[in-house]
């Protein structure tokens, strides 16, 4: 993890390269995080990829309900030569959760982005094949959102298969 100075250096580089891209930086219990403008995620991540953070370790969504903007997309980047990690966070509202896909930078972002779309409804623009991945394709709702109830779904047997989503379509 970069220390506070290192993180500020990275953030300043980003500010220079892409004005307005960095919203905030924080270091909490060893976790260096840069919060970015969701409209500029591609540019920021391209810059960081060229800077050495060439490995996308993880991409996941978070729901910050009841805070606004509710959704968060977190990129855990890894620098394999310096063994350094930095987290990039973009916050999105539930009304229009759109963010550019980074599958062009890392082909491995394919499945994680699909999972994030599946679970949180974040639409990754430019993703080649944005479909549900873990839930059934005709499932309604985004189950990892905090306001999605647990157990709010009927278990389907033969007698109630008529209730299955899209059964008669």
């Amino acid at each position: 993890m970069p220390d506070a100075t290192g993180l500020e250096l990275i953030a300043n580089e980003l500010r220079e390269a892409e004005p307005g891209s960095v919203i905030a930086t924080s270091i909490d219990r060893g976790r260096a995080e840069i919060r970015i403008d969701p409209g500029k995620n591609r540019e920021v991540l391209t810059h960081l990829q060229q800077r050495g953070f060439g490995f996308l370790a993880s991409l996941h969504g978070v729901d910050y309900y009841p805070e606004e903007p509710r959704l968060g997309v977190i990129y855990e980047l890894l620098d394999m030569t310096e063994v350094d990690r930095v987290s990039i966070k973009a916050r999105l509202s539930t009304e229009d959760p759109r963010i550019s896909s980074v599958t062009g930078l890392w082909p491995g972002a394919d499945f994680p982005e699909r999972e994030c779309f599946d679970m949180f409804g974040v639409i990754f623009e430019g993703h080649p094949d944005l479909r549900r991945i873990l839930m059934p394709e005709d499932y309604e709702g985004f189950p990892q959102r905090r306001d999605f109830p647990v157990g709010g779904e009927p278990v389907l047997f033969t007698y109630n298969e008529q209730q299955n989503y899209g059964h008669n379509q």
Binding site: I123, G126, D129, L130, R131, E137, D138, Q169
Partner: peptide
Amino acid sequence: GTTATTGPAALDPADYR
């Protein structure tokens, strides 16, 4: 047979069918 869809069209169950 699995055409790629992006955006809100992927949300539509009818489209899945």
